[in-house]
Design a protein around this nucleic acid. Structure first.
Length: 444
RNA sequence: GCCGCUAUCGUCUAGGGGACUAGGACGCCGCCCUCUCACGGCGGAAACCGGGGUUCGAAUCCCCGUAGCGGUACCA
């Protein structure tokens, strides 16, 4: 099996493209086949080296490796010209100066469902000659057979007047030369497939096996964009998702295992993925579910691993203790700092929390807490907990009445990791200092 | 307009003529756990687009309609 991923470098790698890459990768790894990476850069206006680099970077982050390439389509210009001449010489293609207006006029005259046929000229763009009769049938693993009547097809332009080739021609030739056995790509290419098939047929070449994947949409059914949470791999990364969780989630968008299992490691995905079970309906990207899944993966990591990833993500170091007490409470790497940053940067400023918990009553409690913590020895979970529970018992109040004022004193907010854990991570000196500071600030 | 694809809970899906009073997951709601927020556990609400067929019997097969999406570029 030889598959390929062929993005065009006209922007960042979008989630839909990432899923296409992932499916091809899973297929190749499952079958012990070869994944070829080809950069479809025949649109020279929109293709940039920066975009190529971004795509490669996204694939690296997703940990999707390829076996051949990246091959630039532009680098194959010579070969394209050769094949073009071959088609021209064989009468399968012709030059024509017909414009889009000419095509429209033709249809106005012959009916909209009648495909455009041009007359051969000495100059102009190169059009592929579509037979007048018959049909081209696309055999698709996912969709079955789709028949395209030739009479409905326009003679497609396969090379511009300046000689540069167009997508539907280049893709057919490149897949052929690369020995691609399975073309797995988005459904938006289904309608173009007969054109590519016609090129192959004119060349007397065999057909690859096709599989057109359902498209991905945003929560509103529209094209995926940033306001849906993320549209590109880069945005996913910045949002603090783990590549392994993204692989799991993206695979599930359009495919389900036979037992409908949700959490599947990459090894399991490789083991179980197959084209037969790919869905035919478009799927909507659901950032909520990704978050949940990401949280599951996050909690599977060892503290050391998670710490390393968070230190890379935040650019800070010495995070281990804070990570250890926060991991139950975060779903993404991005959730960590808002929750635990106070440990390093000092208490947050939340007037509402202060007002609610550090009034007269709260401060009185805090004073007791301070006294109780002062002599705790050692300053570890158990003794600290015992000391605080002593305050609760002595004051005959609900635990919350003691813990919340303390929390606000330490974190500046009403939400934080567990209070005993937080105290221990901060240490006695820092904890007492923060309590003192809270007591100094006048009640509002 | 024309050509084509698709159609099960809000979302991702299981289902491939009787096993369906339609299963799972996210989300949502309730309860439990509980120092906040989470995590975890338990329970609940929630769907076969509409209409015709075929059949003893359709979520499952066929047709029509409708809707969504894609293509219709000298874009990819």
């Amino acid at each position: 099996m030889r598959v390929r991923f062929a993005p065009s470098p006209t922007g960042a790698l979008h989630i839909g493209g990432a899923r296409t890459a992932l499916y091809n990768w899973l297929l190749a790894r499952h079958a012990g086949g070869t994944l070829v990476l080809r950069i479809e850069d025949t649109d020279r206006e929109r293709s940039t080296p920066e975009n190529v680099e971004q795509i490669l970077d996204a694939l690296r982050w997703l940990e999707l490796d390829y076996d051949e390439g990246p091959i630039s389509q532009i680098s194959r210009t010579e070969r394209h010209q050769e094949v073009l001449e071959q088609l021209l010489a064989g009468g399968h293609a012709y030059r024509s100066n017909a414009t889009a207006d000419d095509v429209r006029a033709f249809k106005a005259e012959h009916g909209a469902q009648r495909g455009f046929r041009g007359a051969a000229e000495d100059t102009g763009a190169v059009r592929l000659r579509v037979p007048d009769d018959g049909a081209t049938v696309v055999h698709d693993v996912i969709r079955g057979e789709t028949t395209f009547q030739h009479t409905h097809l326009d003679d497609p332009v396969i090379a511009r007047a300046d000689g540069s080739v167009l997508y539907n021609f280049a893709v057919a030739v490149d897949d052929l030369d690369a020995g691609i056995t399975h073309v797995v790509r988005g459904e938006d290419h289904l309608s173009n497939t007969p054109k590519q098939l016609l090129v192959l047929e004119a060349l007397g070449a065999p057909q690859p096996i096709y599989a057109h994947l359902p498209l991905l949409h945003g929560p509103d059914g529209k094209k995926l964009s940033k306001r849906h949470g993320a549209a590109s791999v880069q945005e996913l990364r910045e949002a603090g998702f783990l590549p392994e969780a993204v692989r799991n989630y993206l695979t599930l968008l359009g495919w389900g295992s036979d037992d409908d299992q949700t959490i599947l490691s990459t090894a399991e995905l490789i083991e179980r993925f197959g084209l037969e079970r790919v869905s035919r309906n478009p799927a909507q990207f659901d950032a909520q579910k990704l978050r949940w899944l990401n949280g599951r993966y996050l909690r599977e990591l060892t503290v050391d691993d998670l710490t390393a990833r968070l230190e890379e993500y935040t650019g800070r170091s010495g995070l281990r203790g804070a990570v250890e007490i926060s991991r139950e409470k975060v779903q993404t790497l991005a959730d960590f700092w808002p929750l635990a940053g106070f440990i390093f940067d000092g208490p947050a400023d939340d007037p509402a929390a202060r007002e609610k918990w550090l009034g007269e009553e709260g401060r009185a409690v805090l004073a007791d807490v301070r006294a109780a913590l002062q002599d705790v020895e050692p300053f570890d979970m158990e003794p600290v907990q015992a000391a605080l529970e002593g305050v609760v018992a002595a004051r005959e109040v609900k635990p919350k009445a003691v813990f919340q004022p303390l929390r606000v004193a330490l974190a500046g907010r009403a939400v934080s990791p567990g209070i005993f854990e937080t105290l221990v991570v901060l240490g006695r000196d820092e904890s007492l200092a923060r309590i003192d500071r809270a007591l100094e600030i006048p009640a509002t």
